[in-house]
Nucleic acid binder design. Sequence first.
DNA 1: TCTTAACTTCATGATTTTGTGAAGTAAGTG
DNA 2: CACTTACTTCACAAAATCATGAAGTTAAGA
Lengths: 169, 169
Amino acid sequence: MSEVQETQRDQAAILRFIERYAGHLADAGMQRMAARVFVALLCQDSGRMTATDMAESLQVSPAAISGAVRYLTQANMVEREREPGSRRDYYVVKDDLWYDVITRREQLIHRWESTMREGMDLLGENTPAGMRWKETLEFYAFLHERLPDVMLEWRERRAELHRKWGLGD
Amino acid sequence: MSEVQETQRDQAAILRFIERYAGHLADAGMQRMAARVFVALLCQDSGRMTATDMAESLQVSPAAISGAVRYLTQANMVEREREPGSRRDYYVVKDDLWYDVITRREQLIHRWESTMREGMDLLGENTPAGMRWKETLEFYAFLHERLPDVMLEWRERRAELHRKWGLGD
DNA sequence: TCTTAACTTCATGATTTTGTGAAGTAAGTG
DNA sequence: CACTTACTTCACAAAATCATGAAGTTAAGA
């Protein structure tokens, strides 16, 4: 036990952690494999991995990785990078990850607006049910209006933390 | 066409709307049947329905409703009410629905904290990967701290709208 | 007490989702 | 111009999820 270097990581434990946290994300509606890949990426110091690395460390087929990274890039949670003169794709998590994730999700919800408006019209704008949808539209408008400020506030807090942690922004 | 009363609702269209909006919620990770039941409830003037009503209007079995309302009550999106001296359960959506839904979801995420902390420790608090989880913990702490204010702000905005719409708060 | 209505639970079948292996495409490398 | 590596697509099988009917439970009402 004492012979193990302190900086050496317990890979098995990290894999279990990946499964556990990916499970949380899956509970919240994310595809399981995409969640695994995403969390695995978050556990890399570099925040970068090739598809081959992922397949190997998660013990799944390259095909599964292919599907997962398509989901993640479409959801804008991960970016694909290719070094010139190489066939190897690197997938990388953004620097200010949560800013992007939240902003994205808000945009998704914003696309439900037209459906809600239709519901309101069908039920009648001045009926109790119609007004419930009207209020819902107002709620999403409120979020759409207010969230950017809050996320900006986060950016400031984050910059401050990085200063404190000696990361030089 | 002109013989139809203006206040009469197009039930078929409303059912299609229910399916459509429930589909959005399902995309966001909610169980399909629970989403249907929830949206159906939102389309009632009273915001209340019995399980039997739901089964009938959505054309599904009582068993499916039973499962869906269990999900919804556990997720605190809907409340069960029983009138004394009756065997009929009414399910009802809260008045300030979105306040509760958002607050709930935030609480759910808060429960992931211990998992995240474990990840941070496994990776080493001072490694780049460990610091990413540290930052994530800070982000959720930020939300936990900031969201209540924002939702309170929503309550004020809502009260104002209700005044404008003549709903007397 | 017996009947009936309201709801739940459970086993089952159907559908959907997920991950795989195999085949295919594309792009560096010798 | 072949060879190899990196990745994607596709058909299929395994697994998970979903909704149902049937049986069970509880409680009101006769």
